[in-house]
Amino acid sequence: MAASDQEHVPVTVQGFTVVPLKFSEDKPAHCLYLKEHSVRENDSSHPRNRTLFVLNVPPYCNEDCVKQLFTPCGKIVQVYLHDKPTSAAPPSGGSRYFPVGLTTPGFKVAYIVFKNALAVKHACKLSYETPLVLNSPEKTISSTGLHKWCRQYAARRVDVKELQAEIEDYMAKFDTKQEEETQRLKDQEGVADEEGWVTVTRVGKNKGTPRTEARKKHLTKRETKRRKEKELLNFYAFQFKETKKDQIATLRKKFEEDKQKISVMKAARKFKPY
């Protein structure tokens, strides 16, 4: 085999293709492990034959970095980054101040969805001898050092007007959702379900506290706890014994006092026929 052919032979470990990754040309290589993602059922977010599964993605790689690295293999439709392997797509929605789903900083797992299935085959044939380079003199994908710190500091700066607008929008959606839920409960009241059961009431005088089974259990638990706190006076065995001894001693003392009173009354009694 020629030397040029050996350079393009991929290195595989337990079914994963090993691809070196460098932050820049002068940095040490870091290995990515990738293979074709296979699922039993067809998933819209991770389509079969068009999804590349990548392990050991470093923390400095975001979606744009991953897309730039694997674009030479084919056109990329979507990149998903997860903390651990999963078949679900990352939660959508949210905003800068109210994100949906919190991620843990560290190494990630990537799912790269290509437009064509042939791109996954090309990615799995990447050579171990030709590492992927994230930053080069011609292109810079991920910032580092002072530029990175400045970008992170600017991202943490809060725009008061933007934050106020997002809060108002969030509260408006929350109020609408609460009104819809209240109206749904009112519509269900007094209406028989499929089995013939009728919901008499779902909301009490305090509209913020629905009369559910969980609420009833909570009240019962709180009342039981309050009753037990009152009964903790003689909780321990020695306390119960001491209380009994005190009660017996008090009864004996009172009995002796009553005996003395009866003796005095008998001695003071005299026979007076006239």
Score class of each variant (00 low, 15 high):
Phe238Ser: 15
Thr176Pro: 01
Glu181Phe: 14
Glu181Trp: 11
Gln239Asn: 09
Phe255Pro: 05
Glu257Asn: 07
Asp246Trp: 05
Gly145Leu: 10
Asn234Pro: 08
Lys177Tyr: 14
Thr199Gly: 00
Gln152Phe: 00
Glu179Asp: 15
Arg184Tyr: 12
Lys205Thr: 01
Val200Cys: 07
Asp175Pro: 00
Glu181Thr: 12
Thr212Met: 02
Thr224Gln: 14
Thr209Trp: 04
His147Asp: 10
Arg157Trp: 00
Lys173Pro: 01
Met265Asn: 04
Ala192Asn: 05
Thr220Val: 13
Val160Pro: 06
Tyr236Lys: 13
Glu213Trp: 00
Lys207Tyr: 04
Arg211Tyr: 05
Gln188Ala: 15
Phe255Leu: 10
Asp193Pro: 01
Ala165Asn: 11
Ala237Asn: 03
Leu185Cys: 12
Arg215Met: 06
Ala192Phe: 07
Leu219Phe: 09
Val191Arg: 13
Val264Met: 07
Trp149Phe: 15
Arg222Gln: 09
Thr243Lys: 11
Lys225Leu: 08
Leu251Asp: 14
Ala214Ser: 07
Met265Cys: 10
Arg252Asn: 14
Arg157Asn: 02
Arg202Ala: 03
Val191His: 07
Arg202Ser: 06
Lys244Leu: 11
Asp193Glu: 08
Lys173Phe: 04
Lys216His: 10
Lys221Ser: 15
Val264Cys: 02
Gln260Ile: 10
Phe238Val: 13
Glu179Phe: 10
Glu162Ser: 14
Lys259Cys: 14
Lys228Ser: 15
Glu189Asn: 12
Asn234Ile: 02
Glu213Gly: 05
Thr250Pro: 05
Ile167Met: 05
